[in-house]
Design a protein around this nucleic acid. Structure first.
Lengths: 222, 222
DNA sequence: AAGGCAAAATTTGTGTGCAAGATGCCGAAG
DNA sequence: CTTCGGCATCTTGCACACAAATTTTGCCTT
């Protein structure tokens, strides 16, 4: 239930490679714009180009990588215009998850969510950004699960993944964790009270704030 | 603008094959559950297994095909539970498209939408189901475009594509076209009036009705 | 006759080679 | 000095071949 890693079965080599590259993109080891050369990746993993190629294709369809027909693949570069749109959709999708969660979460799920929020409180107080980031992901995951709609969950997780490489930046804002934690509290309260409208509004606001901070960040960068 | 075909660049053979298989799934030539044998497909297209394989991988990630690790690929079988969830999400996503469209559509786009609705009126009156279906798709596409959010558009189109094989069934309901047309009218009016709330509600209702009819259909089938 | 085990056959996953397309460089012409 | 065109090189796209795995079939045992 509180599962946040989805490495279910590296049944095939291509899936293995995909998961590794995915992880490296999330962690920032592979920056947006980095070229993904099939041959060097094949050499690195001790495999042939074929599974590497399939892994890259999967990443292309997940949106993390872009690939021009005969020109190779690169980690999806930061496109400000598109980022704004993704955050806009993300706020709606997460809002919907929270709305459904407020209606459908079981008592156990609600307790679990409250526990996660409690753990986040300790991380927030200890100013442990890395751990807070991890708990934050678990928190959002719990709400995705709480929607009890797998299709919506997949959408949310896909968006979360595609935004992950950039979301990290905002944590540099020193007081952001406090704000984030407080907003989470609103959502938890609304879900506990089984109030869909309030849950949706609170979550939308939470993500919108993140989007604003991100926009501010990129405006400084450019 | 009113473009509904997205065969932009058959740059690579794999993309060609994917588009063909996609089309066949939509048209019902390839029923859910049908096995997709790499070798026979390769023979049919006069190519090797490699591009066929890549095409299938793409279809897997688009959700139209499922594939168990060493067990081959089949056209995604009808999963009632999942279908219900997809319709639920579809109603929200289309509702959001309509909401944004009401706020963001240009005068030209609004006229185009009205024209499409007018064309649908003639098809509806003539009881030309096939043509109505085509115009219906163009209508929804126009609203997706009107949202002016490419990420949201992609989501909507992906869902529309995955539901297409089943959506066709509901048109058998003789009087459904009249209802569908009337609901479209509500949406057009709300968008013309630039009323986001009303547009969203009308579109949500429209899709929800489709979902109900679909649910009714499958309950009869089983 | 029925059930289980084993071996063969079919099918997918991976490795390798070759050809086509694209990028970059270098030279020549304006 | 700049710009355009042709060539070289590199990378991807596709074909083909081999290996691994799963399913099916047939035989043997109970």
């Amino acid at each position: 239930m509180g599962e946040m890693s989805e490495q279910k079965r590296p049944a095939t080599r291509a899936d293995e490679i995909r998961q590794v590259i995915e992880k490296e993109i999330f962690q920032g080891n592979l920056r947006p714009g980095t070229r993904l050369d099939e041959e060097s990746l094949a050499a690195r993993f001790g495999l042939s180009r074929t599974p590497v190629r399939e892994a890259i294709l999967q990443l292309v369809f997940s949106g993390l990588v872009v690939k021009k027909p005969r020109q190779g693949a690169v980690v999806a570069p930061l496109d400000l215009h598109r980022m704004v749109q993704m955050f806009e959709v993300m706020s709606e999708v997460e809002g919907l998850c929270a709305r459904y969660a407020a209606r459908r979460m079981s008592p156990d799920e609600k307790t679990n969510l409250a526990d996660l929020h409690g753990k986040a409180a300790r991380m927030c107080e200890a100013r442990d950004l890395d751990e807070y980031y991890a708990v934050n992901r678990a928190f959002h995951d719990a709400i995705y699960d709480g929607s009890h709609n797998e299709v919506l969950q997949e959408m949310a997780r896909s968006l979360f993944a595609r935004l992950a490489p950039y979301r990290r930046y905002q944590l540099n804002h020193p007081h952001r964790v406090d704000g984030s934690f407080a907003e989470h509290g609103e959502v938890v309260a609304a879900i506990a009270a089984a109030d869909p409208d309030r849950a949706q509004a609170a979550m939308r606001k939470h993500v919108t704030i993140q989007a604003d901070i991100f926009a501010e960040f990129v405006s400084i960068m450019s």
